[in-house]
Deep mutational scan, measured.
Amino acid sequence: KELVLALYDYQEKSPREVTMKKGDILTLLNSTNKDWWKVEVNGRQGAVPAAYVKKL
């Protein structure tokens, strides 16, 4: 499985998103959308802005 690093804090704004903190390591589930990537963090799945994460 592919991992990404959170470059910034992000507070979810809808139920389809997830909150992450700078430095979090997230499991990347889907990166086909260039703006929003689906990730899993702390057992929750949701979208985060692609510009806020970097593939490891």
Rank of each mutant, 00 (worst) to 15 (best):
V39G: 00
A47M: 15
K21R: 13
K55E: 08
G46S: 03
K34M: 10
L26W: 02
G23W: 05
E40L: 08
Y10F: 07
Y8M: 12
A6K: 00
K22P: 03
A6S: 06
K22D: 02
A50R: 09
E2W: 13
K54T: 13
P15Y: 10
V4E: 01
G46C: 05
L3Q: 11
L3Y: 15
G23N: 06
A51N: 13
K55C: 12
M20L: 09
A6E: 01
Y10I: 00
K22N: 03
D9A: 06
E2H: 12
W37P: 02
N30K: 07
E17I: 04
W37I: 07
N30S: 13
M20F: 13
V39L: 03
K34I: 10
G46V: 10
K38S: 13
Y8W: 10
E2R: 12
G23D: 06
D35N: 12
L26Y: 10
V4I: 07
T32V: 10
V4H: 02
I25R: 05
G23R: 01
P49K: 04
V48L: 03
K38P: 02
K13I: 07
D24Y: 04
T19L: 03
S14L: 07
Y10N: 01
V4C: 14
K38H: 15
K54P: 05
L3N: 06
D24V: 04
Y8H: 11
T32M: 11
G23M: 02
E17R: 05
L7I: 10
K21N: 09
N33Y: 07
A50G: 05
R16E: 14
A47S: 14
N33F: 07
M20C: 07
P15H: 11
G46L: 11
L28V: 07
A6F: 03
V53H: 02
G43D: 06
V39I: 07
W37Y: 09
P49L: 05
P49A: 02
Y52M: 15
P15A: 12
K1I: 13
R16I: 12
L3G: 03
K13E: 08
K13S: 11
Y10G: 01
K54R: 12
A50T: 06
V48S: 01
P49S: 01
N30W: 07
N42Y: 08
V53M: 07
K1R: 14
P49R: 04
R44V: 10
Q45T: 13
